[in-house]
Simulated scan of single mutants.
Amino acid sequence: MTVRVLTVALILLVLCAAMPAATAVATPPDGDAARTDLAKGTTETPISITTDGPATVVVQSLVMQPGASSGWHSHAGTELSVITSGSVSLQTATACTPVTYGAGQAVFIPAGVPHQVVNTSGAEAQVVLTYTLAVDAPVRADAPDACPT
Rank of each mutant, 00 (worst) to 15 (best):
G71P: 13
T36K: 04
S89L: 03
A123I: 09
T43Q: 08
L15N: 00
E44R: 12
S121P: 09
A134H: 10
S74I: 01
T27F: 03
P28G: 07
T78I: 07
T50W: 03
M1T: 11
P28S: 03
T132D: 02
W72H: 15
A22S: 06
V99M: 09
L90R: 13
T84K: 04
Q91H: 08
R35E: 08
A146H: 01
I109G: 05
T97Y: 02
A55V: 09
V57G: 00
V127F: 03
G41I: 03
R140N: 04
V117I: 14
L6Y: 04
C147K: 03
A141S: 14
A93Q: 14
P110A: 14
T45E: 14
V113E: 11
S85C: 00
P28E: 09
V5D: 04
G102K: 10
V88L: 14
R4H: 01
A68H: 13
Y131P: 06
L80M: 11
A9R: 04
A106L: 00
V139E: 08
L133G: 01
S89D: 15
D37L: 14
P138A: 07
I109S: 08
D142N: 12
T43P: 12
P110K: 13
T120G: 10
D30I: 13
G112H: 03
H115K: 01
P114V: 09
L80Y: 07
A68M: 15
I49W: 01
F108M: 08
M1G: 13
G122C: 01
M64V: 02
V14H: 02
L38D: 10
A93C: 05
V99L: 06
V63Q: 15
G31M: 05
A18S: 10
Y101A: 10
R4E: 08
A103R: 04
P138S: 05
S89K: 10
D32P: 00
L15W: 00
A22W: 01
V118I: 11
L133V: 00
A33W: 09
C147H: 00
P114H: 09
T23H: 06
L6A: 05
A76F: 08
V118D: 10
D145K: 06
Y101R: 09
T100F: 05
T50L: 10
D142R: 04
F108D: 10
T84R: 04
T2G: 09
I83Q: 01
G77N: 12
S70A: 15
S61G: 15
